[in-house]
């Protein structure tokens, strides 16, 4: 890698981080309205956010929707991927293509498609329904993460387990599942954070009672940005940072990011 490449990469990375840095600076602004540079410094926005019932409720709903969607993906996605592994050829490809429909269809289109169905089913506005929608559009992340773990499995380990006297059930439980755990972990964490920060689907499928933090922030932005919103943004940045640091340590992320098929 040449110095030129490294320099370009550095500039691009700084460019991409600049808005976040600015958000961080303005999140400790003591001013009433948001303006650069801040005239006063204060941690007040962070505390005020947690005292503001509306925003705190929205943050908690976001976390709940993210967690529920991740759980749904795990419960529905893991058995599907294990079953899919035993299919071959065009059928397997067709099933996989169907299960990753959430990637193929743009979020803006999926959102209105789900809106129509939710109205028919009468579940529009429910937070659980939002979690289901988030699970539907983000399921591919779990499938890919588990698939890359599956591809990296050393089958001789399972064969060894069988020759050592473990039943197929115990082999699955004690050998296969632990080797899938990193993939499941990575996929689940990704879906959790994507769900908690999702905007497009959330803004279409929530009402006043179920609005998540990004939706509430969007509403407040129209009446002008405040330091409290910057603080709310920083909560998300920190959440994303924690998740990223957690998963970059796992080998599963490497397998997922550097996977062979593209």
């Amino acid at each position: 890698m040449s110095r030129f490449t490294a320099l370009c990469a550095g500039i691009v990375l700084i460019f991409m981080t600049l808005p976040t840095i600015l958000t961080a600076i303005l999140s400790v602004s003591g001013d009433a309205t948001l303006a650069f540079p801040p005239q006063h410094w204060s941690l007040h926005p962070y505390l005020a956010l947690l005292e503001d019932g509306g925003l705190r409720g929205a943050l908690l709903r976001s976390l709940q929707a993210g967690a529920e969607s991740a759980l749904l993906c795990l419960i529905f996605g893991l058995p599907a991927m294990l079953a899919l592994q035993r299919l071959r050829g065009a059928l397997a490809a067709a099933v996989l293509a169907f299960l990753t429909l959430g990637f193929a269809a743009p979020l803006a289109v999926s959102a209105v498609a789900l809106l129509i169905v939710y109205y028919m089913l009468g579940i529009f506005g429910s937070l659980h329904a939002l979690a289901l929608a988030l699970a539907i559009v983000n399921l591919p992340f779990l499938l890919y993460a588990v698939a890359s773990s599956l591809a990296a499995i050393d089958h001789s380990l399972e064969e060894a387990s069988l020759t050592l006297g473990a039943s197929p059930f115990l082999t699955f439980l004690l050998v296969r599942l632990p080797s899938l755990a990193p993939g499941m972990m990575t996929g689940t964490l990704l879906i959790f954070i994507l769900g908690a920060t999702e905007f497009m689907v959330s803004v279409v499928l929530t009402n006043v009672n179920s609005a998540t933090l990004p939706v509430v922030m969007y509403g407040s932005l129209r009446s002008g940005p405040t330091p409290m919103l910057a603080a709310a943004g920083m909560y998300y940045v920190l959440l994303a940072l924690i998740v990223v640091l957690a998963i970059t340590r796992s080998r599963a992320l490497q397998q997922f990011l550097y996977r062979r098929s593209s």
């Binding site: 990375l13 991409m16 943004g233 940045v237 994303a240 990223v244």
Partner: peptide, 17 residues
């Protein structure tokens, strides 16, 4: 990290920045 964090922090926080 600098690639994944903006990817994961959501549209609204990005737009806000």
């Amino acid at each position: 990290t600098l690639c994944l964090v903006p990817f994961l922090m959501g549209d609204i926080v990005r737009a806000f920045g």
